[in-house]
């Protein structure tokens, strides 16, 4: 959690228009991912936002889940860039 911020719950998310839900999740995930990978934060967040909202909410509640998903996304991105 970012200090001073109320945790984003499933009901809070469900109350937001569908279009804004990904932005809301992104706003919460981005600083956490930036702390891990400052230069790749925007790209990694964008990649992760394409997965299901329930999984994204779980990542916000579980540092372990967030960390493993971020590292997997970084590995996929770096492998792709190495191929190119």
């Amino acid at each position: 959690h970012v200090r001073g911020q109320e945790p984003l719950t499933a009901s809070m998310l469900a109350a937001a228009p569908l279009k804004e839900q990904k932005q809301l999740l992104g706003e919460r995930l981005y600083p956490l991912i930036q702390a891990l990978h400052p230069t790749l934060a925007g790209k990694i967040t964008g990649m992760l936002l394409e997965i299901d909202n329930s999984e994204l909410l779980h990542m916000l509640e579980s540092p372990e889940s967030l960390h493993s998903k971020v590292e997997e996304a970084v590995a996929v991105l770096q492998a792709h860039q190495a191929k190119e």
């Binding site: 990649m47 394409e50 997997e72 996929v76």
Partner: peptide, 23 residues
């Protein structure tokens, strides 16, 4: 985990935080 990795889209649009978001 393999399914998750396979689902990742490296061409996804980068996320841009909304710097004008209300507090």
């Amino acid at each position: 985990s393999k399914a998750f990795i396979a689902s990742l889209n490296v061409d996804a649009k980068p996320f841009v935080p909304n710097v004008h978001a209300a507090e």
